[in-house]
Design a protein around this nucleic acid. Structure first.
Length: 426
RNA sequence: GGAGAGGUGACGGAGCGGUUGAACGUGCCGGUCUCGAAAACCGGAAUACGCGCAAGCGUAUCGUGGGUUCGAAUCCCACCCUCUCCGCCA
């Protein structure tokens, strides 16, 4: 959510900055609601003040044993208008809130303008794609030949967009997870978190998935009306740790790492990446989350992105980093770096991590604050990034380290996590 | 699933339906004292929002939402959460 003060004071410049991400802000609509809010609120508060005065006078008179019937009648009359106004105020505030919740974040000044992924700016490349002496296969074929990656059985058990791994490949998947967690906790200073995979609507709203993106989520019913949502990323439970909290200044930045399964309905991506494990309803991810001082958050974004890159360097996987353009960024982000790993099977770089600074956009929804140097509570900045998506990392290892005989070499960094097994062979 | 207890400020803990945003204590900040500290004493301190150039004024907030009332932290209802016991369970 954006700062309501900013919208009130300078909605036109907000609108123009949002147009870069092809969001058209209804400035006139906002002004109209805001004007009504102001009028209704002022009047309501006047009446409330009058009511409080009456109540106070009646109380005082009663103590003295005076007759208060007249005052009470007068007060009743004055209150008649109030309940109606209070309802109107509530309604207009809800409309304002609804409006605000649908407005995306303002892109940071350093974000390149653009409409689609084609306009993203490549920042750097690391490693160079391996030259194969044979035609490289993609992970689906490699996995099938090894009989360790089975989409048919997964489809029988659950449906499309699920995967089933067996034996050494399943272990490799686990090894990758452990490796990432160890690097981030032991070398990058993150605190490991284990968090709920089902969360309430409030948490989803805090990080921005709700109300706008309900269709992307899975939910399970709970009780009469309520429901739990399955987390689409550990960002949700972990960032919500600081919801409604005021954290001490000296504790910043908070750095959390959390491995979790992620559940996404992938509504609207029919026909996209249907082959293999690129885009599944369920996948594992190691997520990095930072709660930062507002003046440090962009510094922290560079650092966090570097932490994610370090995993790829250790696994000897070629990658590049791109800055998402205004049109390609997520709803809540002010700036995003995507890290894309080289996939020989697709002959392309594919996203394996997305590192974003949300500035105060999430913090405002979360009411996540810190006590500033002046002793006043101020909104924190929140950041997160994948460090990394486990399934896609597995794919990258399979495709980049595949052998002519259909086997897979294990990158040296993972040997300790594989019981020193160095190859997976057919 | 059954039975019970409880949710008040950073924390502990009061609070006959009426000048209660909330006693008291601890902690915190400033000051006096001191070479310095401790102790003691004095003083200060919630958050959000609205109106206003400002000084300031007003509104809301005692788990959440509704209700009763001229007036609710205090009464009623529903829900959420925490704790204890029983049952079940990894």
């Amino acid at each position: 959510m954006l700062d309501p003060q900013l919208l009130r004071s300078d909605i036109d410049s907000v609108a123009s900055r949002l147009s870069a991400r092809s969001f058209s802000l209804d400035a006139a609509g906002f002004r109209a609601i805001e004007e009504e809010r102001k009028a209704v609120q002022v009047r309501t508060q006047e009446l409330q003040s009058a009511r409080n005065q009456f109540a106070k006078r009646i109380g005082q008179a009663k103590v003295k044993g005076e007759d208060v019937a007249g005052l009470m009648a007068e007060s009743s009359r004055a209150n008649a208008e109030l309940s109606d106004l209070e309802m109107r105020l509530e309604a207009v505030q809800r409309r304002l809130q609804d409006f605000m919740l649908e407005v995306p974040n303002i892109p940071h000044a350093s974000v390149p303008a653009g409409k689609s992924a084609d306009d993203n700016a490549e920042m750097r490349r690391a490693g160079s794609p391996r030259r194969f002496t044979f035609t490289p296969k993609d992970h689906v074929d490699i996995g099938a030949q090894l009989k360790q990656l089975d989409f048919d059985t997964a489809a029988k058990i659950a449906g499309a967009r699920f995967a089933l791994m067996k034996g050494p490949l399943a272990r490799l998947h686990r090894a990758i997870t452990q490796f990432m967690l160890d690097v981030h906790t032991q070398e990058h200073g993150y605190t490991e978190i284990y968090a709920p995979y089902l969360v309430n609507a409030k948490s989803m709203e805090g990080t921005g998935q709700l109300p706008k993106f309900e269709a992307d989520l899975f939910a399970v019913p709970r009780g009469e009306e309520g429901k739990f949502y399955l987390i689409p990323t550990a960002e949700v439970p972990v960032t919500n740790i600081v919801r409604d909290e005021i954290v001490p200044l000296e504790s910043l930045p908070l750095k959390f790492v959390c491995h979790s399964p992620c559940f996404r309905s992938e509504a609207g991506s029919y026909g996209k990446d249907t082959r293999g494990m690129i885009r599944n309803h369920q996948f594992d991810k190691v997520e990095l989350v930072q709660i930062a001082h507002p003046q440090k958050s962009y510094e922290q974004l560079e650092q966090l992105t570097g932490h994610a890159e370090e995993i790829l360097r250790r696994l000897e996987l070629p990658y590049r980093v791109v800055t998402l353009c205004t049109g390609d960024m997520g709803f809540a982000a002010a700036k995003t770096y995507d890290i894309e790993v080289w996939l020989p099977g697709q002959n392309a770089y594919r996203e394996i991590s997305s590192c974003s600074n949300f500035e105060a956009f999430q913090a405002r929804r979360l009411q996540a604050r810190f006590r500033s140097e002046k002793g006043k509570p101020e909104l924190v900045h929140t950041l997160n990034g994948s460090g990394l998506a486990v399934g896609r990392t597995l794919i990258a290892v399979m495709e980049n380290f595949q052998r002519a005989d259909g086997g897979i070499d294990i990158p040296p960094g993972l040997h300790p996590y594989m019981g020193e097994i160095k190859t997976i062979t057919p």
